[in-house]
């Protein structure tokens, strides 16, 4: 199981563009909105976030420091 983008269904307008760009099949249309499906290989390409016009999808990065 891999970490997936964060979806806010209340902001999703159901345009489906994220589903068409998703490379791993983690996003599917369910009725008129998008839902997330657990997959093993989300590569965090962030294309879904890039094409989402409403901000419903977010791909947050953890900011990690490697101490010297």
């Amino acid at each position: 199981m891999s970490t997936l983008p964060v979806l806010d269904p209340t902001k999703c307008d159901g345009c489906g563009l994220c589903v068409t760009v998703c490379r791993c099949g983690a996003l599917v249309m369910t009725g008129e909105i998008v839902t997330l499906v657990q997959v093993d290989d989300c590569g965090w390409c962030c294309d879904c976030e890039l094409v989402c016009d409403t901000g419903a999808l977010q791909c947050p990065y953890e900011i990690v420091t490697i101490e010297d």
Partner: peptide, 16 residues
């Protein structure tokens, strides 16, 4: 935003 808080690492999207 690199400080490790009580809830773990901070997270930011590219939009943020």
């Amino acid at each position: 935003n690199s400080l490790h808080g009580a809830e773990g690492f901070q997270k930011l999207t590219q939009y943020e």
